[in-house]
Design a protein around this nucleic acid. Structure first.
Lengths: 221, 221
DNA sequence: GTATGTGAAAGTGTTCACAGCG
DNA sequence: CGCTGTGAACACTTTCACATAC
């Protein structure tokens, strides 16, 4: 049996994709826009992000060799490379939002999606009174049109902004319609299904901070 | 020298506090409200949260022994214990929001803070045109009143909803005013300071998902 | 019998430290 | 000579597996 020597591609830790690369991108974008710096070292980038220099070099090394020894990284080049890796280079991702209540409306009005290439192109609600109206310029549709609209509008990402009680069922419907990525604002942990899901719950974040606040309170006594 | 044998308290991993305990609490609250279950096993809880049973037992064991062998955990009792650990038992946390723009207004209208014991009791903006008006029943104040209001209103948590460009400086002002916990909606990574900070940026979450979406797209070709 | 609590083993992620390139 | 890229060492986290308690 002949063994072909494939380049030993090490597994990329999840946290690199899920947390750090997007943060690198965010920091570099800012540097680039401010136009202060043409090159950046792992040390510098680490300082602005509270990571070790080694961490940053290691993370980037999973995807290639972008730096120049003795010089650091070219900001523009690294930026482009990160956008490419994350699937953000020269393209737009279309999103469908479900649940046009207070939270849903706020999400539709959030100003940072579009400039980053994420566009909410459709909205859905189960309440007939809301269907047909427009929110942030987008017509609210009936849930029964979910599947068709997702195909027609070439939607790849779903946003869930419904109450906890209906969230799991809405996620199921999105998955049935072929959605593979969901941003979930409902306060539940969805059952594992087909789609990749990212949860947003500010209350959970507050609840972890109160743990530490409580500790400090007590140590004062 | 006499050695006192203190119980070997193992360090609690950060992720237990920062992620899992609040999720346990959220899931148990829901179970309790639905009233379906009086007891729950680590296996059951794990299934609803996509964690292993061992993980849950280990996490809880850092704080004591709450379960009964052969029976599992009493939902109500565990719920109370978790609330106690996280500093949520019979108390309210007061919060101050800075930045009454579109995002800030949406946060002030978010319906899940108050029922969980988190109350926005003051709002601040640097724009004189906004100062004096009310948003969601809360008067908007001048930034120069930050420190005094935080003392007077017994505020422990800050919420930052200003643009990236002023976020770091606002965080500094909150820290100067004695704030030890901040929920940061601005798209920056703050420099390490006195306060504990939790960041919320839905764009980062989307950007990690597109990485995987892109992979699937390519494997189809 | 059944499910917890927990040391020990396995697995995963981070830091070290230095060879090597610009 | 400075800073990257990277194996190797280290640190941390999760899972295993079983003695223990109800």
């Amino acid at each position: 049996m002949i063994k072909i020597n494939i380049k030993n591609t090490k597994r990329i830790p999840d946290i690199v994709i899920e947390e750090r690369l997007p943060k690198y991108l965010r920091a570099l974008s800012r540097m680039y826009e401010n136009g202060t710096l043409e090159r950046v070292s792992s040390e510098d980038l680490g300082k602005t992000l509270n990571y070790s220099a080694a961490q940053i070099r290691k993370d980037l090394s999973y995807f290639g060799r972008f730096g120049k020894q003795g010089q650091g990284y070219d900001v523009k080049k690294l930026l482009d490379r990160l956008r490419d890796i994350l699937g953000l280079q020269n393209r737009q991702w279309n999103m469908a939002l479900v649940g046009v209540g207070g939270l849903g409306k706020a999400i539709m009005g959030y100003g940072r999606f579009a400039p980053q290439g994420f566009k909410i192109v459709a909205a859905f609600d189960q309440d007939p009174a809301k269907v047909g109206k427009k929110v942030a310029g987008v017509p609210v549709r009936d849930m029964k049109d979910l599947k068709d609209t997702i195909k027609e509008e070439n939607i790849q990402i779903g946003i869930v902004a419904v109450p906890a009680s209906s969230a799991q069922s809405v996620i199921g419907k999105l998955e049935e319609a072929g959605i593979k990525a969901i941003l979930n604002y409902a306060p539940i942990t969805p059952q594992k299904g087909i789609a990749r899901i990212q949860d947003i719950d500010p209350v959970l974040k507050l609840q972890s901070m109160t743990y530490y606040l409580k500790q400090t309170e007590q140590s004062k006594k």
